[in-house]
Design a binder for these strands. Structure first.
Lengths: 137, 137
DNA sequence: AATTTTAATGCAACCGGGTTGCAAAGTTTA
DNA sequence: TAAACTTTGCAACCCGGTTGCATTAAAATT
């Protein structure tokens, strides 16, 4: 096989198996973030453990990033091409309390925080809750 | 019984049972946030469901607030007297990746975010990860 | 191409935090 | 004191996440 997904996987040194291409396809077409259980439902018959490990692999390779939106299930989203998952790539996430969708606000970087003396920064998770524009209509 | 905990509970219209006073005592003495499983361990024999419901009661009464620090377990901390859990009372939380303690950075308010058009704000969760000053020594 | 080596998959089982139903015990009210 | 209501303790369950292990598939080697 030789398509955009295949190439994207290869370029990150991930072996492009059929399963991985399918998962990458779903993640790419997904407008909002998606959880492992939700991902499972996208397939007629797919193993949770395999999907779980696929997501882990993708995350390690910085193909996707994860957000803990407090819903109980970790959410995953495709990283933008320019993303290296460095502090400066971190953006705010938004959880709509109506449609329950969590989306990347990719244009909104997480504000810098001046930590107290002798605290060092590693990363940050910022999730805003409210009503999204779709649900407001 | 008639002590500070008792009074605090009464002032929030929470019936001051023995269990609730003990839990409030633990939460008050606790320097960092605490999870339900951790709270359970503070007692020789206490029922998880009771503690769970106690925390829920306290949270509804805004005696405590909860933080999802991504560790898998929700963390709870006493609210400051001045806190009404309004947006302006929200502060940043810090999870130390070394000692695994999550603490309130009560002095650091969560920065305001300019949401995209037609998004409305309800609340926000912001957790910074890094090394705390204690572990830095 | 056949064999060996390595990696990915599928299945089952498990873990841990959270949550609920329900009966027993404890409180409050009449 | 009796009736009404609340809290507690126990058990069971749910669900997301995670791991061990045998099977299958892919890659490397001969």
């Amino acid at each position: 096989m030789n398509n955009e997904f295949d190439n994207k996987l290869k370029s990150r040194n991930i072996k492009p198996t059929a399963m991985r291409e399918l998962v990458l396809k779903v993640l790419t077409e997904q407008m909002t973030t998606i959880s492992l259980p939700e991902l499972e439902q996208k397939f007629d018959r797919a193993d949770k453990a395999t999907l779980y490990r696929t997501l882990k692999t993708f995350e390690e390779s910085k193909l996707i990033h994860s957000v803990d939106d407090g819903s109980g299930a970790m959410k995953y989203a495709i990283c933008q091409d320019s993303c290296h998952c460095n502090p400066e790539d971190l953006h705010v996430h938004f959880l709509c309390t109506k449609c329950k969708q969590t989306s990347c606000l990719s244009e909104i970087p997480v504000p810098e925080i001046n930590l107290p003396d002798n605290f060092s920064f590693e990363s940050v998770n910022m999730v805003v809750k409210g009503i999204c524009s779709n649900c407001k209509k």
